[in-house]
Amino acid sequence: MYDFTYQKPSSIADAVKLLAEPEAKALAGGQTFIPVLKQRLNKPSTLVDLAGLGLAGIKAEGDKITIGAMTTHGAIAASPEIKKAIPGLSMMAGWIGDTQVRHCGTMGGSLANNDPSACYPAAVLALNATIVTDKRRIGADEYFQGMFTTALATDELITSIEFALPVEKSAYEKFRNPASRYAMVGVFVAKSAAGVRVAVTGASQNGVFRHTEMEQALSGNWSPDAIAHIKTPPGGLNSDIHGSAEYRAHLITVMAKRAVAAAS
């Protein structure tokens, strides 16, 4: 990696101030960002480590679960509250990367980066979660704006993510890229106060998206059969040496059916 200045602020205000500098970058769990730095694909002037801001932790209240932005995948997977209230989210967190990644990587970091192959965007979109920042609250539909693009301003920090309860059904299935094991196609299905939602990650050139045709079909009949006939147009889907757009389109239905079956 290139040389940079390292800062570990202890307040959100200080962090935001540091991030206002040009070429300053926030460091959350670092599981994507540190490999990027090691490959010299990014040259920040300052690295602002968010680990000192007290943003980790899971809080379960009656009608919502709040997950601090710096909470690790490992902590989310291990939380009995999340396992009980949103089993699909628990399962998803426990299936990211490997043990080492899960004990460093954070939900806030993943959402801020919005890698088109990341898992969390599917959960947040399907569960209609709210992204809470130091400045405002952003609904999931507004938050995701294409690959590596979000509604966040450059000096805006995610502080927590709120999931409204109750969640009646939730499940996630992914087909992993054989090499990287990132989601080649990941589908999160959910039934909650926001209705039936199906969010697909990994497949599209534009990042996570809602599959409204499947949502409508499942609203009337929550069963794998209800969506078995639904074909996703391959236009706009990713295509690479691991899978053509047609194959990814096919996998969307396969993964969605599995997720629905798992949440039945």
Partner: peptide, 8 residues
């Protein structure tokens, strides 16, 4: 396939 992202 120049990295483990693509070499399985």
């Amino acid at each position: 396939t120049g990295s483990y992202m693509d070499y399985t």
